[in-house]
């Protein structure tokens, strides 16, 4: 047991299932995240289909092309995240660092586009108070945005430790955990994009 307490400590001890603690832990955590976003998404569906006051703004107000760009950016970032893990698994540390930087950049581009998009929506009269669509739009994308920030922070930690040479082909579980989390964040957006923009 190392003296520094890490939240997801990768123990070298063999486990009963053969799967490391951290990996099981992150999957259980994601199960709870699925339920969290699931509750919001099902609330959205219930009110969208059930409330006569649910007014969906016309598509041109929603800046669909920009959101599509954002979707594309996040999917790219998932690919680069996979490449980062694949690189370190072949002990290619430089490649991992490069791909991690690309992943983080994609996350930042996503957030940057969002900071342009929010005031744009307010301009069009879509706010959290203006009606049910606005309430859902800002709550769901806001919560997802917080998750993106969390993912970027996680990736940044992996990057800094990577630059310091902490990861290798035999010791890269946390790179994988960061990847699992990042893919989940992307996946949520892939569900939110059609729900909030296209339908």
């Amino acid at each position: 047991m190392s003296s520094t307490p890490w939240i997801l400590d990768a123990s070298d001890e063999p486990t009963s299932t053969g799967v490391p603690h951290g990996k099981l832990g992150i999957w259980v955590f994601l199960a709870s995240e699925v339920m969290l976003f699931g509750s919001l998404i099902s609330s959205y569906i219930v009110l969208r289909l059930g409330s006569t006051h649910f007014i969906v703004p016309p598509h041109e107000f929603l800046s669909v092309p920009v959101a599509a760009l954002n979707t594309f950016v996040l999917i790219i970032s998932s690919v680069t995240m996979v490449m980062a893990l694949a690189s370190i698994q072949q002990d290619d540390r430089k490649g991992m660092i490069m791909y991690l930087i690309a992943t983080i950049l994609c996350g930042l581009i996503f957030l940057g586009v969002k900071t342009w998009e929010y005031p744009h929506k307010w301009h069009e009269g879509i706010t959290i108070q203006s009606g049910l669509f606005g309430s859902f739009y800002f709550t769901m994308t806001g919560l997802h945005g917080l998750h993106v920030i969390g993912g970027i922070a996680f990736n940044l930690y992996i990057l800094i430790q990577g630059i310091r040479g902490k990861w290798s082909s035999t010791h890269c579980q946390r790179v994988e955990y960061a990847g699992i989390y990042w893919h989940f964040v992307d996946l949520v957006w892939v569900v939110l994009f059609p729900l909030l923009y296209l339908l």
Binding site: V28, A31, S32, E33, M35, L36, F37, G38, S39, L40, S43, T139, L143
Partner: peptide
């Protein structure tokens, strides 16, 4: 793990 996040979602709303 599976039930509490749903209340968290409700509480957020």
């Amino acid at each position: 793990v599976l039930a509490f996040p749903v209340l968290q979602g409700g509480a957020l709303l």
